[in-house]
Computed example of a mutant assay.
Amino acid sequence: MDGLTTAKADLTVYVHPSKSNKLADAVRKQLSSLLFTYDELFDGVLLSHKISFQSNHAKILHGLIPYFGVKVRAKLLIFSPKPNMLLEGKVVKLSKESIHVIVLGFTSAAIMSEDIREEFKYKIKHGAGCFASSSHKWHRIKVGSMVQFAVKSVDEEIGHISGSLIPPQTGCVHWLLKHSADAVSQTNRSLKRCRD
């Protein structure tokens, strides 16, 4: 899935003097407060961090409350979706007008009817709605399906993604994996015949 990146960063974390006896916990708590929210510094949403201390020395900041700065090296996992990237998510709600998806368990995405390819028709099967492909009988999108979609736009403030199922490499992940595996095996068979 696009949009996930790892980064190494040298950071200075500012800690209150009352937390100096449990410094590692204080630093982790400070960085954990940034988890699952958009941060301009990282240009994305911080999903996880692993820290190591660079030295035993800290720089004291003078002022009303003398915080001290601790230098740490951190490995970060950042979610930073951009337009035209391919993302995967689980369908949680489906109607004739839209498909609502949860990406990585915390970010919502909406795919509106004008962003769904014409081959997908909304149908009601066994009392539940689904989008079924008119080109491929078993290509269906229903509640609980994992879908791969293209990013149209991202609203960082509220953490909402607008998606699209127009590109051909989008749709139900299960069907896409099986379909691409069939295409690869057919290509391998034809290459083997050519060599023989």
Rank of each mutant, 00 (worst) to 15 (best):
F79A: 03
A9K: 10
K90E: 08
Q54K: 13
S133L: 06
C172H: 00
V101F: 04
W175Q: 05
A132P: 00
L104N: 08
I51P: 07
Q148R: 15
D10S: 15
E156V: 12
D10K: 14
H16V: 05
A58G: 15
H136Q: 03
A26D: 01
T187G: 07
G3K: 02
K125H: 14
K71P: 11
S190W: 08
H62N: 13
C194F: 15
R195S: 13
T187W: 14
A181K: 09
E114H: 14
A150T: 10
G63H: 05
S133P: 06
F106M: 03
Q186K: 14
K93Y: 13
F53P: 06
H62D: 13
S95T: 12
S135L: 12
E119Y: 04
A74V: 11
T107H: 07
I65D: 07
I51H: 03
D39G: 08
K71H: 12
K123V: 13
R193S: 13
C172S: 15
R195Q: 13
I158K: 12
K90A: 02
S153G: 09
G129W: 06
M112Q: 11
L64C: 09
R193N: 13
D196M: 12
K125Y: 12
I99N: 00
S180I: 03
F68D: 03
L76T: 01
V184R: 11
V91K: 03
S108G: 12
S113D: 11
D39R: 12
N188K: 14
K178S: 11
S185N: 15
A110N: 12
E156D: 08
A110M: 12
L11P: 05
V173H: 04
L87F: 04
H62C: 09
V92F: 08
N21S: 08
H49D: 06
N84F: 10
A110E: 15
L176W: 02
N188C: 14
D155L: 10
D115W: 07
S135Y: 04
P81Q: 01
K82G: 01
A110C: 12
M1W: 07
T6S: 13
F120S: 03
S52G: 11
H136A: 00
K137V: 08
A26E: 03
S190Y: 06
G105D: 00
M112W: 15
K59H: 11
A24M: 15
G171D: 03
W175L: 02
D182P: 00
H160C: 09
I141M: 04
K29C: 10
K137E: 11
I60Q: 07
C194G: 11
A181W: 08
S95F: 00
P167Q: 05
E97Q: 10
H16E: 07
A109L: 04
S32Y: 04
D39Q: 11
Q30S: 14
K50R: 15
V13E: 02
A7E: 08
S48Q: 10
I51N: 02
H57R: 12
N188R: 13
A24I: 15
F131E: 02
I60Y: 11
V91I: 04
S18Y: 10
A24V: 15
V154P: 02
A24P: 07
E114S: 14
E97F: 06
E119G: 00
Y14H: 12
D43A: 06
G3I: 00
S48C: 08
M1E: 10
E157V: 14
V147Q: 07
F79T: 11
L104H: 07
E114V: 10
L94D: 05
F120P: 04
G89P: 01
G159N: 02
S180Q: 08
L104A: 07
